[in-house]
């Protein structure tokens, strides 16, 4: 298995510039506030991952102020109905609101049924709100990998509050915690005992818990069990998040809910938490960007793909360790860092 030594510090073929150029007209329309251009740009981000770096370069400078609010909960609790009400409430408080509703793609066909607009038809044609449905695609039941970039596009378009709605207890909830500045967990009366079985992490990560459908009996029981769970000390900050009972359908408690979201938004900005979260996400983005870039350069200078394939085949047969092979491969790569770059 001989790959010749490769140097990935070779700057002769950086990936930048490989990305397909976007029509200038698209940007002109986008900055002029053309919703069609915004929609088109989101599709670019969804469909052409290698166009994302160039697109984000264009957006830089316009980002950093919007609050991204993840709204998540088990299926059927009414997240769509609730997001619709929250979006309108925020718009009435002079915000421009983006709504991203993520639905699972079928792992078998790649298709997706996205029904969120059925409950979000109160603001079609409302200029204060931009709504987009996203299929989770290779995000396999979690968020679509393009979700953060889609949120960037919507923010740069001028939206300062962005709701990211996901349904399902599981990966989507965990993904949303890494994408959103605030996490709103939605529950309903009859999922009372579901609290025990919820993915570890989400209860702790929620900044706000909403018990929807409080017009149905049982909301109090859910509130009580939540208070009990938090009294055991399972909150992120050690402090229980606000718990609110609402009815999205009868628009009860919605004003208070939107006010609470506003207060939380203000407080994460004032405390510096918002910047901190942004910074944490940027660190991750930069790290994975470097990994991607180096990997691409490596591939361009070696037939690593084939060598790895070959090695895996042998490892299966021999029962050998993958890590030994990794060390061997890496020992053939010369990675030099300009000492001045670390100053």
């Amino acid at each position: 298995m001989g790959t010749d030594n490769v140097r990935i510090d070779d700057l002769s073929n950086l990936s930048a510039g490989v990305a397909p150029a976007l029509a200038e007209g698209l940007w002109t329309s986008f900055w002029a506030g053309d919703r069609r251009a915004c929609a088109r740009l989101i599709s670019k981000v969804e469909n052409e991952p290698n166009a994302i770096p160039a697109i984000r370069e264009h957006l830089a400078g316009k980002l950093g102020h919007a609050i991204r609010i993840g709204v998540t909960g088990p299926p059927g609790v009414g997240t769509s109905t609730l997001c619709s009400a929250i979006a309108l409430g925020l718009a009435d408080r002079q915000h421009r609101v983006g709504v991203i509703a993520v639905d699972p793609s079928s792992p078998f066909t790649g298709g997706a049924f996205m029904g969120d607009r059925v409950r979000m038809d109160k603001f079609v044609g409302d200029d204060r709100i931009f709504m987009r449905s996203l299929a989770s695609r290779e995000g396999r039941g979690g968020l679509s990998p393009s979700t953060p970039s889609v949120a960037d596009v919507i923010e740069a378009f001028g939206m300062d509050r962005i709701l990211i709605e996901t349904v399902g207890v599981g990966q989507a909830e965990l993904d949303v915690m890494n994408t959103a500045d605030l996490v709103v967990l939605v529950l309903q009366p009859i999922t009372g005992d579901a609290i025990q079985s919820m993915k570890a992490g989400i209860i702790e990560a929620a900044d706000l818990i909403v018990v929807n459908k409080s017009d149905l009996p049982g909301a109090d029981t859910v509130l009580q069990s939540l208070r009990f769970v938090y009294s055991l000390g399972s909150a992120k900050s050690g402090k229980a998040p606000p718990l609110l009972a609402v009815s999205a359908q009868q628009t009860e408690g919605i004003e208070e809910l939107v006010d609470t979201i506003e207060q939380l938004s203000t407080s994460i900005v004032q405390s510096g938490r918002h910047q901190e979260l942004r910074q944490m996400r940027l660190v991750e983005e930069i790290k994975s960007g470097i990994v991607d870039e180096l990997w691409q350069r490596y591939l361009r200078q070696s037939d690593a793909e084939r060598v790895i394939e070959e090695a895996a085949k042998q490892l299966v047969a021999s029962g050998g360790s993958a890590y030994k092979f990794v060390r061997e491969m890496c020992s053939k790569i010369q990675l030099t860092v300009d000492p001045k770059a670390n100053a």
Binding site: G111, G115, V118
Partner: peptide
């Protein structure tokens, strides 16, 4: 259409041409 691999945004009943 979903089974054929398409992404379908379903709007539901009582839509207007505008919506």
């Amino acid at each position: 259409l979903v089974e054929a691999g398409m992404e379908v945004v379903y709007l539901g009943l009582r839509q207007t041409p505008e919506s």
